[in-house]
Design a protein around this nucleic acid. Structure first.
Lengths: 134, 134
DNA sequence: CTAAAGTCTGGACCATGGTCCATAGTCAAT
DNA sequence: ATTGACTATGGACCATGGTCCAGACTTTAG
């Protein structure tokens, strides 16, 4: 335990080998220790970190966000971590609001469209052709 | 009128010149008519089409979607246009649901985080470090 | 007529988050 | 020892939706 190859690491973290190297290149994982052959060696710390990245990603954080989050985590700066989470949440809420705005517009057009008949009577086509939407 | 340059077209449609050429290359605009010099010439039809594209984009359609929409519009196929709109709406609704799921998870963590104190007591860091989120 | 502004082309480049490839070297099992 | 599986590297490539550039040519205003 605590000394395994990139293949095992990737497998245990549930990511592709290329992704591990990609994360290393992009500063999400520290440069791995190497065997005399040049093969990377990993321990539990890297596995944890990789899982952290995976989870943060599933919470909607970008890799850039995650780099920041990892720094804050290393600093054990709870206040900044909370702040970063709040910012991300605000970002998610804004995206939801925008999608809801767009969805509402589309829903209205769909409701008004009979689904048959002359193209001139199709509110969807008319909206795309004639109206200033915003 | 009805005979203007790419610059005027772009200006009147509210897009960049490069975007017009990009759309032409990618089949969203038909190949433009040319002057003897090779300069593109446009009329009202192209302006309308470009505005159609802009509006469809603001309704959340991708350029690929819009290519389809333009074909359906040319066919005057109201039924298919309505169906395309419904599919896009379903897509938007799914994206909203996913963002809400993620937002709810984040909100819960933020609420539980005191914002100070030991890193071990930060639910956000703990979630990223320990839990299987999904 | 001249100078400035506009347009042409092909191709490079941006961000995002990877994936895939060839070539070469290494490790593990039999 | 050999074979098959694994890993190394740099760089190309994917989608998306453009943006920007150089170098050459054209149009327009004064």
């Amino acid at each position: 335990m605590s000394n395994f190859s990139i293949g095992k690491l990737a497998e245990r973290a549930g990511v592709a080998i290329d992704t591990v190297r990609y994360y290393e290149r992009n500063g999400l994982l520290p440069p791995a220790g190497r065997l005399a052959s040049g093969y990377r060696r990993y321990g539990e710390a890297e596995l944890k970190r990789l899982r952290f990245i995976r989870r943060a990603k599933s919470l909607g954080f970008s890799l850039e966000d995650i780099r920041t989050l990892l720094e804050l985590s290393a600093e054990r700066n709870v206040a900044k971590v909370k702040r970063a989470a709040q910012l991300k949440l605000a970002d998610i809420d804004a995206r939801i609001a925008e999608l809801e705005r767009v969805g509402a517009g589309l829903r209205k057009l769909i409701r008004a469209c009979p689904g048959h008949g002359r193209a001139e009577a199709c509110p969807i086509l008319n909206a795309l052709t004639d109206e200033e939407l915003y």
